[in-house]
């Protein structure tokens, strides 16, 4: 399923990357520990997290992730958005908790 469809189904707010939503999502990953994400996340995954500092963009870029969903209404930092823009990493925000959005995403793409 591609990002546009997922954004629509999950009612995600696009904080960055409105023009980069054609990518197909390979799966999901939930986690806030950057070392775990680096070790386990797969290319094309949609990453669900509460971390908002700009390091998340580096991780997403290195692991070639489809995008990042920030949960529980957490707004990304300005630096993070700027970095995401230059790296081409879409960033989304949802008011749902990680468990809820993971559950819904799981049912969409599995």
């Amino acid at each position: 399923m591609d990002l546009t469809a997922i954004v629509k189904e999950l009612k995600l707010t696009v904080a960055q990357g409105e023009l980069e939503l054609t990518r197909d999502v390979s799966g999901g990953y939930v986690g806030d520990l950057l070392s775990d994400v680096m070790a386990n996340c797969k290319e094309g995954n949609l990453w669900i997290t509460r971390q908002t500092h700009q390091n998340i963009v580096a991780v997403a870029s290195l692991k070639d992730l489809a995008g990042i969903i920030l949960v529980q209404g957490k707004e990304p930092e300005r630096n993070t958005l700027d970095k995401a823009s230059s790296e081409g990493i879409p960033i989304f925000v949802t008011k749902l908790s990680a468990f809820e959005v993971a559950g819904k995403l799981y049912n969409l793409i599995t």
């Binding site: 806030d32 520990l33 950057l34 070392s35 509460r50 971390q51 908002t52 500092h53 707004e75 930092e77």
Partner: peptide, 17 residues
């Protein structure tokens, strides 16, 4: 909410959000 001066070590323990 969200402002942190935590070190990487502290973050890896799950704190410092």
């Amino acid at each position: 909410a969200g402002y942190s001066t935590a070190s990487e070590e502290i973050r890896e323990m799950g704190f410092g959000a």
